[in-house]
């Protein structure tokens, strides 16, 4: 392993710990500066524990002693990015705006098509994708909406 990889590994390992350290410091700030500290006893204790543990983990990361978890390489990030984007659009826009069943059909179809290894050129692939999406949505609609009568988000449509 080269010197450079080692440094990169240590930096990678420090990222999540720095985030928890920041969170701990913020919780400590919020819970030590309130007017009535009584309901903030537990947050205070938790923030101290978080800061202490983060500092210990950071120390280990910088020394290179953190050996669990490999981090996220850039190529992996690029492969999952479209999927995460679909998830965000589906959850934040499609499902609440179009309605749960319509939004989910669109979300399901998009995510499935994006990651389906079969050729995008073939008509059969697209027919399969539409059939599976429609079938899945029909089953959950029958079970949840008609049989169990569960409330789901309503938008423009169901």
């Amino acid at each position: 392993m080269s010197q450079q990889d080692q440094v990169a590994g240590r930096v990678q390992q420090s990222i999540p710990v720095l985030i928890t350290l920041g969170l701990g410091l913020w919780i400590a700030y919020e819970s030590f500066t309130v007017e009535d500290p009584q309901p903030y006893l537990f947050p205070q204790l938790i923030s101290i524990a978080m800061i202490g543990l983060s500092a210990a983990a950071l120390f280990r990361a910088v020394r290179g002693a953190n050996r669990t978890g490999a981090g996220i390489p850039v190529d992996l990030l690029l492969r999952i990015a479209p999927g995460i984007a679909v998830m965000l659009v589906y959850v934040l826009v499609l499902a609440p705006q179009l309605g749960f069943y319509t939004g989910s059909a669109v979300g399901f179809f998009t995510l499935y098509s994006l990651y389906d290894p079969n050729s995008h050129q073939s008509v059969r692939t697209w027919l399969t994708r539409i059939t599976i999406t429609a079938g899945f949505m029909l089953v959950i609609y029958l079970v949840f909406a008609l049989a169990l009568q569960v409330q789901t988000p309503r938008g423009l449509f169901l």
Partner: peptide
């Protein structure tokens, strides 16, 4: 991909 989409919904 189908499993992932289904679990998401």
């Amino acid at each position: 991909p189908i499993l992932a989409s289904g679990i998401l919904v």
